[in-house]
Design a protein around this nucleic acid. Structure first.
Length: 573
RNA sequence: CGGCGAUUAGCGCAGCUUGGUAGCGCACUUGGUUUGGGUCCAAGGGGUCGCAGGUUCAAAUCCUGCAUCGCCGACCA
């Protein structure tokens, strides 16, 4: 490709609405342009990278025995009603109607469509197990699209679905796919981790996410220092402390705290250490028979955070979790948030394990501007239950029993699920078993965020000059940068010859034939992240040499013109 | 969905307080100059100042409403 004929579209300045480095570099390197919030056009070089990811994904899927197909983006509402997700999915499901006023959804995922397909086409256990996949555009009406293609409203996803007669078979395929995912991320050259995950709106039992480690990641993941254990923080279990609760040593006393509404203010103004106080969070309880919701108090140690997911799974708590409105709290308790505590509450009290072993601690007195000190469970609060409702923190013992937990940030690029019969049962998808009786299939599903991988890869591979593509992802293998081509009689011929020869050797070559100064060309090639740059200049021509620069290492080597193509080809193999 | 902010040329921004015919840098076009790391000079093209309404002799500028985009939050009491 000649830059003069290409739409390189590099930018000197960073568009002001790009926050994270991958988004900035994708814009500056001419890979994407925004059409509207969360909607992006892929430019030629960006598309090449996207296709490179797709190719690796396809190859590994095929190796794992999956078969490619393609399903529609537009899906009839009936299928979603059948699975129950027309209601459950919420506003993220973008809904449209056709000219006959029939409701449709733009597919955020394809469990319904594939299950419908398989129940119609597969009728015998002999056809199982079966794994089908597609690489396709997904639509999710995100509350807040951000970070460029990292969280877009329209994106490319590889989704695979497996069908089995029983869970043992599903488990086997799940492991095969797990391995295939590892292979994919290895080949992409990414620093990644598989972690135990929640199943969210997709459903099912067992689930793993694959995270690319990056500071800008939206998820926190917890690892054991001693074992392979790794889990999304929303799923990582906080073990109950092994220590017993100490006996009360202080009397219950009130003290005035007119300006202390947060743990931080309490610490600052009254010298109460965060770990000597508790936070009392009031949420709505599960609906009773009359459809009414009471309030529930959730209590965690002052330096801990509530884990929403753990809390909403408790039977007493409404799901999804919703914090109580201030007016409801005042009506029921008589005090505003900031002065709440467990003493004298007549709503259910659920205490985190770590808070339940505290003694002589501080909390609000359920009277505005007043706190208690010297609170003790049992003596001062008779009725409460305990549960794991907090996020793990760095240094907590690992749930696997080995080592302590460490926390890092990650970008979720893959997610695999053992769905079980959630969809097949709701949609009555069965086959005839060996006995001749109908048997509901059990399913797995496996997703990879293809477009998100492109951004995640940049997060891990860049410097102040631009992108440093791993070879497998790079839009071009090598760039030819001739110095002052239009001034020299020798350089154009040599550059053209290299262009032809390197292309003939099977490489993707970007030939910078613009009438630009060397600095401009170098900067653009570094911004775009081309792994190798072949510099052709008068200076080295007298020695019959050209210079090859490695973008990742910065290393420069001189090559003899005659053997250069052979050496470069060897290097790329 | 709540709070904050922005919206002026393709990109980055100034002008608005104090109303008086729209500017800078980059990019683009043309000519010259320079040439191994974003040269320099000159001449050009490009804008219904987000949209709608209002105030005024006169609105990018003041007022009202709306839209779009972004950030933070949507549990940490």
């Amino acid at each position: 490709m000649r830059t003069s004929q290409y739409i390189l579209a590099t930018l000197k300045e960073t568009p002001s609405d790009a926050e994270v480095v991958s988004h900035q570099l994708m814009l500056r390197a001419g890979m994407i342009r925004k059409l509207a919030s969360g909607l992006y056009t892929w430019l030629p070089s960006g598309l090449k990278v996207l296709r490179n990811v797709e190719t690796i994904v396809r190859e590994e899927m095929e190796k794992a025995g999956a078969i490619e197909m393609l399903m529609p983006v537009i899906q009839p509402a009936d299928l979603w009603e059948e699975s129950g997700r027309w209601e459950q999915f919420g506003p993220e499901l973008l809904r449209i109607t056709d000219r006959h006023n029939r409701p449709f959804a733009l597919g955020p995922t394809h469990e319904e469509v594939i299950t419908d397909f398989v129940r119609k086409e597969v009728s015998s256990y002999k056809q199982l197990p079966l794994t089908l996949y597609q690489v396709q555009t997904k639509v999710r009406d995100e509350v807040r699209p951000r970070f460029g293609v990292m969280r877009a409203r329209e994106f490319t996803m590889k989704d695979a679905y497996s069908f089995h007669l029983d869970d043992a078979c599903l488990e086997k395929t799940y492991q095969v796919m797990h391995q295939a995912y590892c292979n994919i991320f290895e080949r992409l050259g990414l620093d990644y981790r598989p972690v135990i995950a929640d199943t969210g709106s997709i459903g099912g039992s067992v689930s793993h996410e694959f995270h690319v480690l990056a500071e800008s990641g939206e998820d926190a993941i917890a690892f054991s220092t001693e074992s392979d254990y790794a889990a999304n923080i929303e799923k990582a279990e906080a073990l109950a402390p092994a220590t017993e609760r100490a006996e009360p040593s202080k009397e219950l006393n009130t003290f005035d705290t007119p300006n202390a509404k947060t743990i931080a203010e309490l610490a600052e103004q009254h010298g109460v250490k965060a770990r000597k106080g508790v936070k009392t969070l009031i949420v709505y309880g599960a609906e009773n028979e009359d459809g009414e919701r009471g309030l529930v108090a959730l209590i965690v140690r002052g330096d801990h955070e509530l884990n929403e997911l753990k809390a909403e799974k408790l039977p007493l708590v409404d799901s999804p979790l919703e914090m109580a409105k201030e007016e409801d709290i005042v009506a029921a308790i008589g005090a505003k948030p900031g002065s709440l505590g467990p003493v004298g509450l007549d709503i259910p009290v659920i205490v985190d394990h770590s808070a339940a072993v505290m003694s002589d601690f501080v909390a609000g007195a359920n009277k505005d501007g007043v706190h208690y000190s010297g609170i003790n469970w049992g003596r001062d609060v008779a009725e409460f239950t305990t549960a794991d409702i907090r996020n793990v923190v760095e240094g907590d013992p690992s749930p696997c029993g080995q080592g302590t937990l460490q926390i890092k940030r990650g970008i979720e690029v893959g997610h695999i699920f053992q769905l079980g019969s959630k969809y097949s049962e709701a949609m009555n998808a069965g086959v005839l078993g060996e006995s001749g009786k109908n048997q509901v299939m059990t399913m797995g599903c496996y997703g990879i965020g293809v477009s998100r991988i492109v951004a995640a890869a940049i997060e891990q591979n860049h410097d102040k000059f631009g992108i440093k593509w791993p070879q497998a992802l790079a839009p071009f293998d090598i760039a030819i940068v001739p110095m002052n081509m239009h001034k020299s009689h020798r350089i154009p011929d040599i550059a053209e010859k290299f262009y032809a020869d390197l292309k003939a050797a099977g490489l993707e070559v970007l030939f910078d034939d613009r009438k630009e100064r060397p600095g401009v060309m170098f900067n653009d090639m570094e911004l775009v992240g081309v792994p190798f740059t072949l510099v052709i200049g008068e200076r080295n021509l007298d020695n019959n040499q050209v210079e090859l620069k490695n973008r990742r290492t910065g290393e420069k080597v001189m090559l003899d013109i005659d053997s250069a193509v052979a050496e470069i080809t060897k290097l790329m193999a």
